[in-house]
């Protein structure tokens, strides 16, 4: 800025900058604005030295503080786990039936159980626990292997018909296609379909076949047997479908539903939490009801 020039109209000094004959008045900014601007630049430089910032070919500068978002996530997870350690220990120590008595513990168990369920169980049993063909609905009141807290926890821990866990729930329905001829199977299908609407399990020709082949597991009353995981045939629930084709397939070739032993993958607190969650979905049974 060599020549100081005053604008004639305003009497204000100009900066000397001219665009197409238009001159810029010099209304100076406060000096501290400039210093603030410099300070932000200084701050920015220090920031990029302390924290990860400058991109390199395969990564970025790590920053002198060694801070990273992954570390932060790990710290947060560790903090949550530490915060939950007390209630988890309480969950493991408590009698399963007594969890319900403690509001805070029960609330934790149900919510933690819901998370475990979504991660590990929903693939087969559905995110709403309504099940699918071959995968039991956990909302209803029918339980193949029992619906008390202890029963559910045992099933979760050891699974069903898997080779990994000697304590797994185990049974196997024979494939009657090798023992009965198709006419007999058709007769049996019609007979079993009648049971749900109150038919006598042992009546008629179908009843004779039923008594000879089925009653040993499903009971002479057709109401099933939990020790064998044999379903109740007189209720309205069909795991593999109750129509003629599905029942013919079931009797001819049998079914072999498998569930993994989750005791190996979930810790004790998670098993108890998910058992508590499943138990309160609407079909849980009380031990005295057994």
């Amino acid at each position: 800025m060599t020549a100081r020039k005053k604008d004639d109209v305003t009497g204000v000094e100009t900066t000397g900058h001219t665009w197409d004959g238009i001159e810029e008045l010099n209304n100076p900014l406060p000096r501290w604005w400039l210093w603030t601007f410099y300070a932000t630049i200084g701050w920015g430089i220090v920031y990029t030295i302390l924290f990860p910032a400058w991109p390199l070919v395969n990564s970025a500068t790590a920053g002198m503080l060694g801070w990273s978002t992954r570390d932060q996530v790990a710290r947060h997870i560790a903090a949550v786990e530490e915060a939950n350690a007390g209630v988890e220990a309480q969950l493991v120590a408590a009698d399963l039936g007594a969890i319900r008595e403690d509001d805070a513990l029960y609330s934790y168990a149900v919510n933690a159980g819901a998370a475990v369920f979504r991660t590990n169980c929903s693939q087969c049993h559905g995110s709403g626990a309504a099940g699918a063909v071959g995968y039991p609905n956990l909302l209803d009141d029918a339980w193949l292997w029992g619906g008390t807290l202890d029963d559910i926890a045992h099933t979760v821990r050891h699974g069903v018909r898997n080779e990994d866990d000697p304590d797994a729930r185990w049974s196997q329905m024979p494939a009657f296609g090798e023992m009965l001829d198709p006419d007999e199977i058709a007769l049996l299908v019609a007979h079993v379909q009648g049971l749900a609407s109150g038919g006598d399990p042992l009546a008629g020709a179908g009843g004779a076949l039923f008594e000879a082949n089925c009653a040993s597991c499903h009971g002479e009353d057709g109401r099933g047997m939990r020790e064998m995981g044999a379903p109740n045939l007189t209720d309205a629930i069909w795991l593999y479908g109750g129509d003629e084709a599905a029942l013919t397939e079931t009797i001819t070739n049998a079914r072999f539903g498998v569930m993994p032993a989750w005791g190996a993958r979930l810790n004790e607190a998670e098993v108890r939490a998910v058992a508590t969650y499943v138990h309160q979905l609407g079909g849980g049974e009380e031990p005295s009801a057994e």
């Binding site: 309504a130 609905n137 209803d140 309205a236 629930i237």
Partner: peptide, 18 residues
């Protein structure tokens, strides 16, 4: 209303909504 599933069939045929 719980819509996953919309209803549950109980063993006696009762239809239940949650």
């Amino acid at each position: 209303p719980v819509r996953n599933p919309t209803f549950v069939t109980l063993s006696d045929g009762t239809i239940r909504n949650t």
